[in-house]
Design a protein around this nucleic acid. Structure first.
Lengths: 142, 142
DNA sequence: AAAAAGTAGCTGATACATCAATTAAAATGT
DNA sequence: ACATTTTAATTGATGTATCAGCTACTTTTT
């Protein structure tokens, strides 16, 4: 069996893990009490509070069960409000609180910053090529 | 804030998640009772039972805490034996059992198969280019 | 040899991933 | 209208990720 380093999937895994750690540390170092996954979800809800939780799940490549728990934590932390949904009692109406909006405003520049840092020295065409290959892998595994 | 699909990191994440699900299902569908992460660790130990757990962790891009728990599960499942290490009492001597070796032999072709499938239609030079970009991201986040 | 520093691995706590099963509420069919 | 089927979300169980703190043991220092 080959060395792991020569298997592209482990390079992909290593890259995304390294990036995620870098990202989370950037946020935590700024004293912000949120995880990247929580941030992602919170941000989507701020954009559009009418989204279904399963739509959110799909958008962030997560399971609906994970969204349930992430929403729960966001509510506990006071970044999100969850009220009865007028049109459909199976759902909830999610609203980002003022505290949540303040947090998002503070996280936003940090995210931009670590994304830029992570991509330093990589050209747009290289990124484009990367996208293509990743999309093919996704299609092959579907 | 941009759409997630246009952020390369989410494409990377989506690709690796899709791949991992595909891989795990291939293994589970064959009726084999092991996770990919457990398989990875078991396979490294089969190659060389003298490796330190922290070396294993490094090799598979995991935390030593994760390795502790994965080893524990492998022992519970009877694929691995953990005995006192002669030279250093802080360590353990890990041995793949006969049952473990049988399992590895059965998993191996499945892994080869889903790896090949996932990479269909992707040329070696594309993979090489992908490696380069990923390595740069890893370096940038270090 | 005794103290200090370093090392291997474990444990606890919290968060996310995944699958299966479940609940409650809509929507649909006849 | 009532039974059936879908749908939205939750819950439970198990596995992995990460960080911090810890234990036991080994090595180094003096």
């Amino acid at each position: 069996m080959e060395k792991l380093e020569s298997v592209i999937f482990y390079s992909i895994e290593k890259a995304i893990k390294t990036y995620r750690q870098f990202a989370q540390r950037s946020i935590s170092k700024a004293g912000l009490d949120i995880t990247i996954d929580q941030w992602l979800v919170l941000r989507l809800i701020e954009e559009d509070g009418e989204r279904y939780q399963n739509e959110i799940a799909e958008a962030v490549f997560k399971d609906t069960a994970s969204i349930t728990r992430i929403v729960e934590l966001l509510v506990l932390k006071g970044y999100l409000e969850r009220n009865a949904h007028p049109g459909d009692r199976r759902r909830f109406k999610l609203n980002v609180t003022e505290k949540g909006r303040e947090l998002l405003a503070r996280v936003s520049p940090i995210v931009k910053n670590y994304r830029d840092t992570a991509l330093q020295g990589i050209s747009p065409s290289e990124i484009e090529a990367l996208q293509q290959v990743l999309n093919r892998i996704i299609a092959n595994c579907g």
